[in-house]
Amino acid sequence: MDIYLPVANLTENVLLLFGVGGLVGVLSGMFGVGGGFLLTPLLIFLGIPPTVAVGTGANQVVGASVSGVLAHWRRGNVDVKMGMVLLLGGLAGSTLGVWLFALLRQVGQVELVVQILYVVMLGIIGGLMLFESLQQIRRRRGGRRPKSRKMHRHAWGQNMPFKVRFRRSRLYISVIPPFAIGAFVGILSAIMGVGGGFIMVPAMIYLLEMPTAVVVGTSLFQIIFVAANVTWLQASANHAVDAVLAVILLAGGVVGAQFGARIGYKLNAEQMRSMLALIVLAVAGKLLFDLVTRPADLYSLGLPPTA
């Protein structure tokens, strides 16, 4: 059941790829995450070039976010106006990111940069998730309730120009901070092939002080378009999206997400989360290991892209 991936330029087992898409789908269905941050490194482990893994990962994020946003949309938990501002920033950032990606590729360092970024990011995310879930387990045993958040301590953008009223979020702030957050996450999205919800959502809560009911829906809403922009630009400018790979992964992801959503309700959330954190840390560790060990082939030959 091997299939040739034209852009990645290698042959892989279809079932294996389907399985990877399915596994990431289960996790995204279970935790309501995009899964791009796990898909890209898993593809790299399979031997798919990091450039193609990033471009194709962004495509997967589009699919996961579309299915994720629907429930939030129905409940009215999307602040479209705020989403548009974040999206404008995201489009600018992701376009810049794809350009940076092409530049790094020209220098021949894109694979190294992608892998280092992933080690750092997954290390931080995995560590924080583990810490958080252990704390929650301890707290539950001790029977204490989590501390509540104090609203409006120092809302960013209160004293900046271009203030706009965001009705759904009950905010009257400058568009500069949301634009900047969108742009930053857009750059990450382009270089790493992730949706960036793990940064976007905390930033919306703590920097923009949006009501938590709308943050997840709004971030998913804008991720759809930013990730679509990344996929489009990575395909057209960098030739880094493998359509065959993308279709197989998406098919696996759709099936997996259904299962994940169903299991997610039944299992102990904290323990599942600490497991996810350990998976993330393991992936970071493996990437780090691959970076610092002596490679099997000491030299890699490549032609600079002629486009």
Binding site: I125, S133, Q136, I205, T212
Partner: peptide, 21 residues
């Protein structure tokens, strides 16, 4: 019940704010 995505504290905050509402 609400789904906070990556972070547990987001889910906790969401549950708390939903309760306040």
């Amino acid at each position: 019940p609400v789904d906070g995505g990556h972070w547990m504290f987001v889910g906790n905050l969401m549950a708390e704010e939903a309760r306040e509402d």
